Amino acid sequence: MLFGCIPIQLDFEQYGFVLPVLPTPWLHYIPIDLLNVSSCFERLEDLLRSPELLSHMAIATREWANEHYHPSVFFQRVIRDMIGYQKG
């Protein structure tokens, strides 16, 4: 994601991934639904016909990753959670 690559990934919400901040399907990643793979590939084929959308997605993906998972942001989140854990 940080390199502007668009990940092809199981759908985060559908498959119950737990992350502090979830990416948006079809904006930050290409979601795969194992129960309906053909619809994913149909939509992917549409996306491949539109280089400007792919470029927009790559930029949005990188910006999202930097905003929520840059090492400094991740470190701050870990420290905040550790402090909250010690207080609780």
Rank of each mutant, 00 (worst) to 15 (best):
residue 33 D to M: 12
residue 7 P to E: 11
residue 1 M to K: 04
residue 72 S to N: 04
residue 6 I to T: 01
residue 86 Q to V: 12
residue 21 V to G: 09
residue 5 C to K: 02
residue 58 A to F: 05
residue 10 L to C: 07
residue 37 V to D: 12
residue 83 I to N: 06
residue 58 A to Q: 13
residue 33 D to F: 05
residue 58 A to K: 10
residue 33 D to A: 13
residue 87 K to V: 14
residue 54 L to T: 00
residue 78 V to A: 05
residue 8 I to G: 04
residue 1 M to C: 02
residue 55 S to F: 10
residue 70 H to M: 01
residue 50 S to L: 14
residue 50 S to H: 07
residue 80 R to E: 11
residue 80 R to P: 06
residue 72 S to V: 08
residue 10 L to K: 00
residue 56 H to D: 13
residue 2 L to R: 12
residue 8 I to D: 05
residue 25 P to L: 03
residue 57 M to V: 08
residue 70 H to S: 13
residue 61 T to R: 12
residue 40 C to A: 04
residue 62 R to M: 13
residue 64 W to S: 02
residue 40 C to K: 00
residue 27 L to N: 01
residue 40 C to R: 09
residue 58 A to D: 13
residue 4 G to I: 12
residue 1 M to T: 04
residue 71 P to K: 06
residue 85 Y to K: 15
residue 87 K to I: 11
residue 82 M to G: 10
residue 85 Y to P: 05
residue 27 L to I: 12
residue 6 I to N: 03
residue 8 I to F: 02
residue 85 Y to A: 14
residue 53 L to V: 09
residue 23 P to A: 10
residue 51 P to Q: 06
residue 53 L to M: 10
residue 81 D to K: 10
residue 75 F to S: 15
residue 57 M to T: 07
residue 12 F to L: 04
residue 21 V to K: 08
residue 19 L to H: 01
residue 84 G to K: 08
residue 23 P to T: 05
residue 64 W to D: 05
residue 25 P to F: 01
residue 68 H to F: 15
residue 86 Q to C: 14
residue 42 E to N: 09
residue 10 L to Y: 01
residue 13 E to D: 06
residue 9 Q to V: 00
residue 6 I to L: 15
residue 28 H to E: 04
residue 6 I to E: 05
residue 74 F to C: 07
residue 3 F to G: 13
residue 68 H to I: 04
residue 45 E to I: 12
residue 70 H to F: 04
residue 67 E to Y: 06
residue 45 E to K: 08
residue 87 K to T: 04
residue 42 E to Y: 03
residue 25 P to K: 02
residue 56 H to F: 09
residue 79 I to N: 05
residue 76 Q to E: 15
residue 53 L to I: 10
residue 87 K to L: 13
residue 74 F to P: 00
residue 14 Q to F: 02
residue 29 Y to A: 00
residue 59 I to V: 15
residue 75 F to A: 15
residue 80 R to Y: 13
residue 41 F to N: 01
residue 12 F to Q: 01
residue 47 L to V: 13
residue 58 A to M: 03
residue 85 Y to I: 01
residue 39 S to K: 08
residue 7 P to I: 10
residue 2 L to C: 00
residue 1 M to Q: 07
residue 21 V to P: 04
residue 65 A to H: 05
residue 28 H to G: 13
residue 22 L to F: 02
residue 29 Y to L: 08
residue 30 I to P: 10
residue 45 E to C: 02
residue 42 E to P: 03
residue 19 L to F: 02
residue 65 A to D: 07
residue 6 I to Q: 01
residue 68 H to R: 10
residue 45 E to A: 08
residue 17 F to R: 01
residue 31 P to H: 03
residue 54 L to G: 15
residue 47 L to Q: 11
residue 63 E to Q: 10
residue 43 R to V: 04
